[in-house]
């Protein structure tokens, strides 16, 4: 659980922030207040979404962690629970929602599907994990994770938030973070970051078929 390397930032601290004594003492209050009012986005994808809703109900009650304010709008939410199978048709919308969320923002990949494709991975219209497109902070295995397993993941997220310091936080850097390019639905899902690779692969000369056959026979 203690993965400190994730929290270090390569950003430079702005000069007006440097050397201010009050920041270090404020850090604790800052982290404490942030971790106790994390607002998730009301966004369900598939089966896991039902367990997420159950989490909001009385038996498991995420209000105890200050998370009960589920916001339907990405503009008001702190973290996104990707709860379920991510299909190719849905990826552009998820990336767009992620881009619309204000910093600081976190992503929780709930369940096997969101983490790495899940049982539907072999199918033609499911992507192998949302982390191929947007950065993910916490992975929760399970299909579906029980509400308690999800709570465990959310507590892990608050622990991560608790460790963040004003000095090293990325969102106070001068440069605004670049938006993640939204994928496009073509003959298959196209990630704009991979256009060059796609072109290169699709314009390769077709390999002659005979050697493939002999290989198969050998195998």
């Amino acid at each position: 659980m203690s993965d400190d390397s994730l929290l270090s930032s390569s950003y430079e601290i702005p000069p007006e922030m440097q050397g201010t004594v009050s920041i270090t003492s404020l850090d604790k209050v800052y982290a404490w207040s942030r971790k106790n009012s994390m607002w998730p986005m009301m966004f369900g994808l598939a089966c896991c979404a039902i367990e997420m809703i159950v989490l909001a109900a009385s038996r498991f009650d995420i209000a105890r962690f200050g998370m009960e304010v589920m916001r339907p709008s990405p503009r008001q939410s702190d973290f996104l629970i990707v709860s379920g199978t991510v299909t190719k048709k849905m990826v552009p919308q998820i990336v767009r929602l992620y881009n619309q969320m204000p910093e600081p923002k976190y992503v929780v990949a709930m369940g096997a599907c969101a983490s790495g494709g899940g049982p539907f991975k072999e199918g033609y219209s499911v992507v192998s994990g949302i982390d191929k497109f947007i950065p993910v902070d916490v992975y929760i295995p399970g299909c579906p994770p029980t509400p308690q397993a999800l709570l465990n993941g959310l507590i892990a997220l608050t622990k991560k938030v608790d460790k963040e310091r004003i000095k090293t936080s990325e969102w106070y850097a001068k440069e605004p973070e670049a938006a993640v390019p939204v994928p496009v639905l073509g003959p298959d899902l196209m990630d704009p970051r991979k256009y060059a690779l796609i072109y290169e692969q699709t314009h390769r000369p077709i390999e002659p078929e005979t050697p493939v056959e002999t290989e198969q026979k050998e195998g």
Binding site: K88, G117, K121, G123, Y124, V126, V127, S128, K132, V184, G186, P187, D188, L189, M190, D191, Y195, I198, Y199, Q201, T202, H203, I206
Partner: peptide, 11 residues
Amino acid sequence: DNVQYPHGFDP
């Protein structure tokens, strides 16, 4: 990732 494209396709 879980994708493929027809031959000669230009994104």
